[in-house]
């Protein structure tokens, strides 16, 4: 899934892990973050709300 901001700029790519995944079955995985979301941190999220929350928090934090 591609995640865009309000100006249609690509922010992140989220992957939905399969139910059989050994690490976080059924979770969403930050496959790639762009711009301020780039870096070594690739968390998993229980649902898309949690992903959105994390992305907003990171953007707010980094934009100071």
């Amino acid at each position: 899934m591609l995640v865009f901001d309000q100006e249609r700029r690509l922010l992140a790519v989220l992957t939905h892990l399969s139910a059989g995944n050994e690490v976080a079955p059924g979770h969403w995985y930050l496959e790639a973050g762009l711009g301020w979301l780039d870096g070594p941190n690739h968390p998993t999220f229980a649902d898309l709300d949690a992903a959105e929350h994390w992305i907003c928090e990171r953007l707010d934090h980094n934009r100071g």
Binding site: V23, P40, H42
Partner: peptide, 17 residues
């Protein structure tokens, strides 16, 4: 463990897996 490999290799445990 895979989590320990993640901390050693600088990648997520999902990617280690």
């Amino acid at each position: 463990t895979q989590t320990e490999f993640a901390d050693a290799l600088g990648i997520s445990n999902v990617h280690v897996n």
